[in-house]
Amino acid sequence: MSRYAMVLDRARCVDCKACMVACTAENDVEIGYHRNWVRAAVKGTFPELSMQIEPGQCMHCDDPPCVRSCPTGASYINAAGGIVGVDEKKCIGCRYCMLACPYDARFFDEAAGIVDKCTFCDHRLALGQEPACVETCPTKVRVFGDLDDPGSEVSRLMRTRNTEKKLAHAGTAPNLNYIID
């Protein structure tokens, strides 16, 4: 068994958006939509200002409201690894999952008529490769790995660094962890 998770170091992100481009190219994401994001917020006015940059994507929650709300069973948690996915054959495009997600991690592909989202590049994982966003990042913001493997880099970071989960009080038990120290 594996339990896939990610540790992200916001301080390393330079808002180059290479992760978004890599994801779009790797997964053939419809133009105009993105499975992952870099959200930047500027505070203050020059010269007194600061910038908070935060990359993200689906949090692959342990208790995902998108899966619970899905009326057809199209949204599911992959038993091997805990990846939250959408079965494109079962999705009817009702968008209830999008309203249920507190992270706005899903989007509606109007041309295909179904909801789409990050898959942690499970097709690459099957080949022993890392997700495209992880591999491509020039500053190594994202670290991906298996929490069930104590020797993995992700496990080591979770042991040694202080991390937070976004909207932990929403109770969805997300698997993206942001370094805060």
Partner: peptide
């Protein structure tokens, strides 16, 4: 629905 013709998916589960 995004895929109206697939509404029957609601009623097989």
């Amino acid at each position: 629905l995004g895929s109206p013709l697939r509404f029957w998916r609601l009623f097989v589960t």
